[in-house]
Write a protein that binds this DNA or RNA. Sequence first.
DNA 1: ATATATTACTATGTATGCAAAATAGCACAA
DNA 2: TTGTGCTATTTTGCATACATAGTAATATAT
Lengths: 223, 223
Amino acid sequence: MRTKTKKLSEKIITFIIENISGDDGRSDVTEESIAAHFRVSRTPVREVLKHLEHNGIIQTRRSKGIFSKNFTREDVENIYEVRTVLEELAAKDAVKSITPQVLKELRTYARITKEARKKRDRRKSNEADRLFHETIMELSGNGYLKRIVKEIRMVTTSFIPASKLFYLNNKDRNPYSHDKIVKALATRNPEAAAWVIKNHICWIKNNILESLEKNGKRDQGKK
Amino acid sequence: MRTKTKKLSEKIITFIIENISGDDGRSDVTEESIAAHFRVSRTPVREVLKHLEHNGIIQTRRSKGIFSKNFTREDVENIYEVRTVLEELAAKDAVKSITPQVLKELRTYARITKEARKKRDRRKSNEADRLFHETIMELSGNGYLKRIVKEIRMVTTSFIPASKLFYLNNKDRNPYSHDKIVKALATRNPEAAAWVIKNHICWIKNNILESLEKNGKRDQGKK
DNA sequence: ATATATTACTATGTATGCAAAATAGCACAA
DNA sequence: TTGTGCTATTTTGCATACATAGTAATATAT
């Protein structure tokens, strides 16, 4: 169980995503501040930052600090278009190797997600949601696909910073639910599974777009 | 025309991909040697290395140096599976905004690729091939898709190091040629375009698998 | 001659220091 | 008050120096 080694960079990533803003002026998140927070030097922090910058999650402006990318409606649509075809692919591959055990596991995650959401336990519901999708990825047997979708999930997560993270609770439930995904997978019909996944993600996308429109009006004028 | 700034990291990437090997023992490619070659310090080199390592192209072993990943047949299939659905997506989107001008441009790249390949001018044919595919990406209007496919192309390029790069010349031509892709795009039928692209890439994948099998036998036993 | 312990070396990981760029604050003049 | 130029400050970019881990080679004992 190797956990300690990798965890630092993961922690730094989480920390950054949760703390950065896209405002102008000076950012209170700097290489120095992150380094100080984790009691390391700037060097390892920089490596994480470069990674995030490369993935388009942050942008660093010299002598100003680190800022979140202000995603446009188009950006969100583009990224979700990519994520959709990749999760469809995963679902299609997953049906080939599905087992009763895994189906049971998926149902458990689906149940936990639903219950936690009902109780407004955002952290727990997100965690179970993540496990649900990652299990399907795992099932696809395609390690590269798994890795790349994980990256994309990191981007989409950053769309909705913690401060704005209310959208899930205020909305109706996703009509293309995890339960329906499980049912489709159980039929072992690739196209059916892909269809449900596609609609599932499409619903999430629309939800995020709505949320961004509600929250993001003020960011409009700024360059 | 900002070229100088970004070029260094691009050059470093090219240099690394062209020089690393997957052998055991000590590598002659080290942070130090790369830094010395480009007359910079290890710091900027490390940033590029971390990026490549993250993309799964290289692996760095402490006190041994930098090595290429030894891709298995399964890795190649996984990565090409991902690339295929993404290029299909690009083609489907591209037909929406295709114009006679772009079709002409694509035909030009197709012609140059073909001619250069006939003359065994590998560099030129690769360049034109890249432009062909990137033009379709551009046409899709999805910047994120464009970026992510570019990354994947970097990985697939690293499958076949320069030293082994003969496969293209020794084989029959791709039956799902660039010409046929252009024709399919011209019909503005998304499914048709995606179908040709899919087969085009599938042919390349099989070609690479064959080449790896011929060249890579010796890498088998090693961990 | 072979196996093992010790030592020197090599290359990465991390920290620190210095240079450059861009901003923000302040003084001063109109 | 408002605009302009200078200076100090902030923060990134790059370089260097030190710490650590893993390897290879040598020496020693059996």
